[in-house]
């Protein structure tokens, strides 16, 4: 198993290198960074001056060598927008996003698994229908709008909670709730169908024929096998919270990575974008590694080849 983890880790490094190189080349071959900063109305000589100033007129490979050395040293250059080193800017925002994502997942995952299991236990019951509705809502959730409606209701009308910011625990409730909708629905749905699938497997029949108690069959036999797809999905959902974070952090002015990404794109700040890509890529790799570890622990076929 240790070999498996090491192999996955090496693969991750490889993926990271590929992603960073792709971003580098795409940023310079498809788009012209200098022209993008100055906008479509810029004069050609202004673009040229800027290119020379940032070294974008040099051969691509020379630029890449400089970029690669910078990445290894943790230096992505200065942000054009804020005129300070880009990587620390991105890293400053990391805790806020991790905080938000953690609260969201800690709330959504257990609840979703419980709801999904209950739905699978009694198909057709009220809980089952509730889970169906929940998953439909989750998939259709217009997160920015839901966030605004929550603000409208709880902050503007009822004045129970603050509209935006991140000063205390009270501030995390509304954004986390908004962000939780999708993983809640999806994980509940997948838990339900994974449980239903396991419950229809022949080994459940065997367990019943052995006279094992129903509770033990559901929680011990079925859930243990259903965990494999559930964990895989939960990992995907954890990564996808970054999607939601972009929108939700904008709505609630939550000072996280998402908000910074939007600013970086609107300000056409290439060094900052590159630094953000680096941070996000590492986040994703760590999450996937965690999922793989759990997965290989749960599935004997992975563990013992």
């Amino acid at each position: 198993m240790a070999r498996y983890v090491v192999r996955r880790f090496i693969q991750s490094i490889f993926v990271l290198v590929v992603v960073l190189s792709l971003v580098f080349f795409a940023g310079r071959v498809i788009g012209n960074p200098a022209a993008l900063i100055l906008g479509p109305e810029a004069r050609a000589e202004d673009v040229k001056t800027l290119e020379e100033r940032f070294g974008y007129d040099q051969p691509l490979l020379v630029q890449f060598g400089r970029y690669a050395r910078g990445v290894v040293a943790g230096d992505f250059g200065n942000s054009w927008w804020q005129r300070r080193p880009a990587l620390p800017m991105a890293l400053e925002r990391l805790p806020a996003t991790l905080n938000l994502a953690a609260v969201t997942m800690l709330f959504a995952l257990p609840l979703a698994m419980i709801l999904g299991s209950l739905a699978a236990w009694k198909p057709g019951s009220l809980i089952d229908k509730g889970v169906n509705v929940l998953s439909l809502t989750g998939a259709s959730a217009v997160d920015f709008w839901v966030g605004l409606m929550l603000i409208l209701f709880f902050a503007v009308q009822l004045r129970w909670l603050p509209t935006s910011g991140s000063d205390s625990l009270k501030f995390v409730i509304l954004p986390a709730l908004t962000l939780a909708l999708r993983p809640l629905g999806r994980v509940a749905q997948v838990t339900r169908s994974a449980m239903l699938e396991q419950m229809s497997k022949p080994y459940i029949k065997t367990a019943r024929a052995k006279g094992i108690r129903e509770r033990k069959i559901v929680l011990g036999h079925a859930l243990k096998n259903a965990f494999i797809p559930i964990i895989t999905l939960s990992g995907d959902e954890a990564v996808s919270t970054l999607n939601g974070a972009v929108v939700v952090e904008t709505v609630f002015a939550w000072p996280g990575l998402g908000l910074l990404i939007v600013s970086a794109v609107t300000n056409r700040d290439l060094p900052l974008i590159e630094a953000l890509v680096f941070v996000v890529a590492i986040l994703i790799i760590v999450t996937n590694l965690l999922v793989d570890l759990t997965y290989s622990y749960l599935d004997p076929k992975v563990r013992y080849g």
Partner: peptide, 24 residues
Amino acid sequence: RRRLCGEKIAMIFQDPLSALNPAY
């Protein structure tokens, strides 16, 4: 009934692979 199952009446199935729990 459950207590009788396994204790007094037992059953084996056609496909022993799927009839055994893969996780134990």
